[in-house]
Computed example of a mutant assay.
Amino acid sequence: MAAWRAVTGVGVLLTLLSSAQVYADERDLYLFAQWAGDHETRTFRQMLVDARLYGIVPIHQLLRSASDWRQCSAQPFAVAPVAQWPAVRSTLQLLKTLTDRGVLPRYEVVSAYRNPALNRCAGGAVDSAHTRAFAVDVLLPSWADPNPLCQFWQTQGKAWNMGLGRYPSGRIHIDTAGFRTWGGDFSAGSSFCALPGAGRPQSK
């Protein structure tokens, strides 16, 4: 009986890991568990629970730093300073709304908070919303249509103070640090979701 329970437990664990497995980034639950063993995340998790935002984004994705962490000799995950947690909550509230309304039915967060040194090394803008914990970079499945996201930004983005950008890599940047949009050359004019007359360069 004990052996059966052990096998069943392993099966459940593998099922959970499989269902949460990322499709674009090596920083999975296994790597996160190793990192979290040496870093404090309990208070951050409790903040999310208290705000009823825990699980909106899997914790190992929400704490991913820049994708260039190896090249920059940095940590694969990072917890934003406590003073910036309101920014985390505002962007998670937006992601929850986008998910609940079917605008983003499925996505993977590949970069969230970055400390300023890592952000510089990774080529981020000096005033990047990532350094203030407002931003996430996401990847959508190949079948996903980004137009509903554009339509949400055009009609409700200002109320959310929402920034929306898309890079040549296919990543989409979402934040709550200012109503703006940009595309491959970091100007609003190159955005897949530009408003008429827009063209000013933006900070990512």
Rank of each mutant, 00 (worst) to 15 (best):
T99W: 07
R180H: 15
W69F: 11
P146W: 11
A135M: 11
F152T: 07
L29A: 15
S142A: 15
Q46V: 07
C193H: 02
S111I: 04
N161R: 06
R70V: 04
R27Q: 07
A74K: 11
P196Q: 07
D25Q: 09
D137P: 14
L95R: 06
A117H: 11
D38V: 02
A135C: 10
G9C: 09
V109D: 01
L48C: 12
P168A: 06
G184N: 04
A33V: 13
M1K: 00
V22E: 09
C193V: 08
L31R: 15
D127R: 08
D185F: 04
F77E: 00
V82E: 00
G9F: 01
P148M: 13
P58E: 03
G170P: 05
V88T: 13
G197M: 05
F192S: 06
Y23Q: 07
R114V: 03
L48E: 07
A74V: 03
L29M: 12
P141M: 03
G9N: 15
D185N: 14
P141V: 02
K158G: 05
T155F: 12
I174Q: 04
R171P: 04
T131E: 12
C72N: 05
V10D: 11
L13E: 04
P141F: 03
L14N: 11
S187L: 02
I56Q: 10
L13T: 14
L29D: 05
V10I: 12
S128E: 10
R45H: 09
E40T: 09
A112K: 08
L31Y: 02
Q93A: 10
L195H: 07
D145Q: 09
R106W: 10
A117N: 07
I172D: 01
P146K: 10
D137Q: 06
T181P: 01
L16I: 12
W69L: 05
A2S: 11
P168N: 01
L92A: 05
N147S: 07
S65R: 05
A117K: 08
S203G: 08
Q61H: 12
V136C: 04
A20M: 08
C193S: 04
R166Y: 11
L31V: 15
P105F: 08
P201W: 00
E40C: 12
C121R: 04
R101L: 06
P168I: 00
T43N: 12
W4M: 14
V136A: 00
F186I: 02
M1R: 03
P141C: 02
Q151R: 11
V22F: 02
V79C: 12
V136G: 00
S190V: 03
Q21I: 01
T99K: 14
A80V: 08
Q84Y: 01
R52P: 04
G199Y: 02
T8Q: 15
V126T: 09
A20L: 13
V88I: 13
